[in-house]
């Protein structure tokens, strides 16, 4: 299924047309071909936050690397901010945070930011001022003078986002930006993204964290096995009728009344029933007719998660036992 086009007045920050990437591995006599991306068409509009979702190995990082020209496409084209990524003027306006960024351990956080700032053309007091601003933003001022070798994973991620923002980017591309962050760091990072979005920065987030997608992104794309399955505005997804899993909690003594619920989507377990939203009403009315004491009903997944699972055809997930349920 081709993604649906979304009409918007904003110009394209990233325009991807028929993008394919094939990896060839193995030796001459045993070549192995992997199709990492298969003819992806995608528009990411300026001043919007776009979230790219997909399972591990779906091709998300490959897509980002192709946008940044770290990989060459087998077929198709990418336009970034109206030009080619090869142009210095285009790169000048881009910030990139790779998944688990790695830095030379011999430098301090401040030195790294100074270096990356100088690559963006800052110098002298302007550079120092910009580095101070970024250190304040990522809350690393007190650790700025320490060598990177002594930093925690979360601190490295903060320096990573700092170097991505040092050039005041118009387009920020992040690959799993929440990796390694503690809950406080996660919230701070999310707030940074929301502030950047308000300031007009285009965000392209490659993420697994659905909460981040719901709170930050305007649109999401779902990549599965190298193909873009869906592209939709988040508002549309939240209003969509994709069924969500629910947990119906009943009294422990009511177990016999749960047996024989005639729906395939309802799975009886100790203390309740896990049921798809498709048959929630019917299951509840059945339990009421059996005079079962229902203590409560709560959703087991978000609308975005359900939409994601539906898009990649993982219906089996809906009936899979989940953590947190008995």
């Amino acid at each position: 299924m081709e993604p649906t086009a979304v009409m918007t007045d904003s110009p394209c920050a990233i325009q991807i047309r028929g993008l394919s990437k094939t990896y060839k591995t193995g030796f001459w006599f045993t070549p192995k071909v992997t199709h990492a991306l298969k003819g992806v068409h995608l528009d990411i509009y300026e001043n919007q936050a776009f979230g790219l979702m997909g399972l591990n190995g779906a091709g998300k990082t490959t897509l980002i690397k192709l946008v940044l020209a770290l990989l060459r496409p087998t077929a198709g084209s990418v336009m970034v901010l109206g030009g080619s990524i090869a142009q210095r003027s285009v790169r000048q306006q881009i910030g990139y945070l790779p998944e688990l960024p790695y830095f030379s351990k011999q430098h301090t956080g401040r030195e790294l930011l100074e270096y990356f700032g100088s690559l963006h053309g800052f110098s002298g007091s302007t550079l120092q001022h910009r580095v101070d601003e970024i250190l304040e933003l990522i809350r690393m001022r007190s650790a700025a003078g320490l060598k990177v070798s002594g930093y925690s994973k979360g601190m490295l991620q903060r320096i990573g986002i700092g170097q991505a923002l040092i050039g005041k980017p118009k387009l920020l591309i992040c690959d799993e930006p929440m990796s390694g962050l503690d809950p406080v760091g996660y919230k701070e990072m999310r707030d940074i993204f929301i502030d950047l979005k308000k300031a007009g920065t285009t965000l392209f987030l490659n993420t697994h964290i659905l909460d981040e997608v719901e709170r930050v992104c305007d649109r999401i794309g779902i990549l599965h096995e190298g193909s873009l399955k869906e592209v939709a505005p988040i508002s549309k997804i939240l209003e969509s009728s994709v069924p969500v899993d629910y947990w119906i909690d009943v009294d422990s003594g009511e177990a016999p009344k749960l047996s024989g619920i005639p729906f395939q989507e309802a799975v009886q377990k100790n203390g309740g029933v896990q049921v798809s939203g498709l048959v929630l009403a019917e299951t509840l009315s059945l339990l009421t007719s059996r005079k079962a004491q229902v203590k409560g009903v709560r959703p087991l997944s978000s609308q975005v998660e359900a939409y994601f699972l539906n898009a990649i055809g993982a219906q089996a997930h809906l009936n899979r036992p989940r953590m947190g349920t008995p």
Binding site: L68, R88, R91, Y96, P98, F103, S104, L119, G167
Partner: peptide, 18 residues
């Protein structure tokens, strides 16, 4: 080890630097 194996080079090459 740093630049190629640990992929620190990504950060340099994504900047406005040929």
């Amino acid at each position: 080890t740093t630049e190629m194996d640990q992929k620190a080079i990504f950060l340099h090459l994504a900047k406005p630097l040929t």
